[in-house]
Structure formats: C-alpha cells, structure tokens
C-alpha cells in the first residue's frame, strides 16, 4: 500500500485548529445527566414522595428488598410516634406523615435493625423477624412489657 492511499483515507488535516465554533464557559455541553423527576423539580422539597413524579432514573423506583434476610415488623399499638426510627433509618424506609409513624417501606428497607435498636418503648414497637415470617403471627406473638429487673 502506498503512502498516498493511507493519507487519502484518513481524516487528518481536515479541520484547522482554531476554526471550530467557539462556545463560552457557560455554554459547554453537559456530560451524562440522570433526571430524578419527569417534570420540573424546583419545589421538590415541599412535596412528599407520593406527590412526586419520579423518573425511571430515580432509585426510588428500584428495590433492595432482596438484600433482607430479617425484616422489622411494626406494632402500632405500642408506638408513641417519637420518630427515632425515622431519623436514624439509613435507607429512608420509615414512612412518617404528619408526625405519625405509618409503617415500613419494604421496597427500600435492607433489614439492618437500627430502627429496632433505637425504639424506646417497652416492649419495643419494632422487632426483627425472619423475612418469611408472617406479620400477623409476629404481632400475635409480641412480647409482654418487661419489668425493670428483667431488662
């Protein structure tokens, strides 16, 4: 193959440096952008999850439920709505609305057990059970209040 063929086929020398369209520092094209919402998100801090229009790129629409081997079960009868479980849950999986604890988001809960540890009631309002355990059975077998000396 001659040198002329090689040079004829490649694209070297086509663009003169400095002749490209210049863009300003504030016009540079974005890299990869993942949008969390389908619509405008400027007021997202004033909207609850159920009032948001999550896009397919938000991890909100994904689940980590398969990570769990044990799960927390919630007993509303004992709960005092202190919100300890809400503040410490690392997986945004305690559903609280209007200062009330409503339950657990089992799509996002990884079963770490932090919420059970920080629950102050006696007996606890959250307890860990095997993932396959039936919640009604769990509630039916809830422990009694512990006396001081047994604690």
């Amino acid at each position: 193959m001659s040198i002329g063929n090689v040079l004829g086929n490649d694209k070297r020398g086509r663009i003169e440096l400095g002749a490209e369209k210049k863009v300003g520092w504030d016009e540079v094209t974005h890299g990869v952008v993942l949008h969390s919402f389908e619509d405008d998100a400027t007021d997202v801090s004033s909207r609850k999850a159920e009032d948001r229009n999550y896009a397919q790129f938000s991890s909100y629409v994904a689940t980590v439920a398969s990570w769990r081997v044990i799960k927390p079960v919630y007993n509303r009868d004992i709960c005092i709505d202190c919100q300890n479980c809400w503040i410490y849950c690392p997986d945004t999986s305690i559903i609280s609305r209007d200062k009330q604890m409503l339950g657990i988001d089992y799509d996002h809960c990884k079963g770490c057990g932090v919420c059970v540890e920080v629950c102050p009631t006696n007996p606890k309002s959250l307890l860990m059970f095997a993932e396959a355990h039936n919640p009604e059975d769990a509630l039916a077998s809830w422990p009694e209040k512990k006396k001081k000396e047994e604690k």
Partner: peptide
C-alpha cells in the same frame, strides 16, 4: 424530632450503601 419528621426526604432509598451505614444517616439529615 416530631416536627423534623415532617421534612420531605430528598435522599432516596435503594442506594447501595451497606445496611446500617452512617454515611446515609448524615447525608439524609
């Protein structure tokens, strides 16, 4: 804390940090 719990979370679940990771507690807050 009751009042604080009315905040609308902007750090979503189903991230892949270890169960019990404190990083997410700090970021969420």
């Amino acid at each position: 804390l009751k009042e604080f719990s009315t905040a609308n979370d902007r750090f979503e679940g189903a991230h892949l940090l270890c169960p019990g990771c404190a990083h997410s507690m700090i970021v969420r807050e």
